[in-house]
Design a protein around this nucleic acid. Structure first.
Lengths: 214, 214
DNA sequence: GTCAAGAAACGTACGGTGTACGTTTTTCCT
DNA sequence: AGGAAAAACGTACACCGTACGTTTCTTGAC
């Protein structure tokens, strides 16, 4: 009786992901993860090489939460839906976007990359556009989310307050920024901005294929 | 005689930037910075609030290296040139792109943001497109550079070697990725890829303005 | 020149971190 | 049952950020 569930790589990664979700990745500590699982620190090292490798594993767990893209539909719709899924997952795990480009891809991420490349290839854009399009699309997914989260975190809960403080203090020196900040306060619909910018890129890829063809 | 130059916030930030350029931001330590300047650790705290604040200052030093955009020329050309300047600076300080979205903007960055917004506003794209275009452009500059550096660092010096190892081991399981990797090995011109994707975005912004106007 | 006062450099100390290493306990297969 | 492999544990160490108190240096008024 009473003997708790044994440790495993998967249980460690899950606990670490939960901890990072809640307290941020900077506060993540091997001891904290061990505490959360009610084990001692060094036991983690039987299942995980070291902290860096654990972080890589954590990122791959998160990538594994992204649903694979649909197998039918217009390529732009499929890509939009897939990107939206990735965006949602990265927004749920706010630390993950910042790790994305620092870590080597794990198995889930390899599958994810493959699925993006498949969409682009089957869209028959030509090899050159597929090649560049892949970089453009992944850049957008990670970069946009990163920026979005960055704004959230530096502005904190009190966006309104911070913004009006900025407007009063420095609005005169930075008129264009003042306008932009007013935009953030106003009735802009941020919900579709991710899709809007991705749309620009996808349309551009489409068009540059046509140009090449014509 | 012999009394070395006194410490100052600026000297500290410069030393820290140099250290991070050379050894990476993860290896950056208050003691290491102090050693580089031949002072003791705690003396740094007379000029810098703490490590986080120092990192914010370091990023702002880097942003200060970006030349301000030209005051004449077509808005797309000006934006392309300005983005290229930012890209070059962020490529020189490989740790900086990763910090960009984590830190509150310092004075140099405020000026930089203002200059981007000025270009877009004077292009007469309409307030909605300026608003979204700003996010799209900054996302591209930081996100693309981040991704580029990420590739470099995880692949290391031996791109060729790693790539052919991947092709042999896993090429069969990931056919689309195999093709992509072959692209990386082949004769793609990476030099203009940053500009190419930015071009897609700028053209898209231009076009969505026309649509709104028409 | 001197002398007070503030700034800057310094030394010490503390709690926390990743993890190497050796030991003990548990698990599992014959 | 017994022995080997795996897993959990405890101890230890070097390094980290930084609070706090002390000493030294700089500077301006007389």
């Amino acid at each position: 009786m009473g003997s708790r569930q044994p440790l495993s790589r998967s249980r460690i990664l899950d606990a670490a992901v939960s901890f990072a979700d809640e307290h941020g990745v900077d506060a993540l500590t091997m001891r904290k993860v061990a505490d959360a699982l009610d084990f001692r620190v060094m036991s983690l090292y039987n299942h995980v090489a070291n902290k860096q490798e654990m972080l890589s594993g954590m990122l791959d767990v998160v990538v594994g939460e992204i649903d694979p893209p649909a197998t039918e539909g217009s390529w732009k719709d499929v890509m939009q839906a897939s990107a939206a899924a990735a965006h949602a997952v990265l927004s749920r795990h706010k630390w993950a976007a910042g790790e994305w480009s620092k870590r080597p891809p794990g198995p889930h991420r390899l599958r994810y990359i493959e699925s993006i490349l498949r969409i682009l290839t089957e869209a028959e854009l030509g090899p050159e556009v597929v090649y560049r399009g892949y970089h453009a699309v992944t850049m957008h997914i990670v970069g946009f989310t990163l920026q979005e989260i960055g704004y959230e975190e530096t502005l904190g809960d009190n966006l309104e307050e911070m913004a009006s403080a900025f407007l009063e203090e420095m609005g005169a020196d930075y008129p264009y920024m003042a306008e932009h900040v007013r935009g953030h306060l106003g009735d802009h619909d941020h919900g579709d901005e991710f899709a809007f910018v991705l749309g620009l890129i996808l349309d551009g890829l489409d068009r540059s294929t046509c140009k090449t063809r014509g």
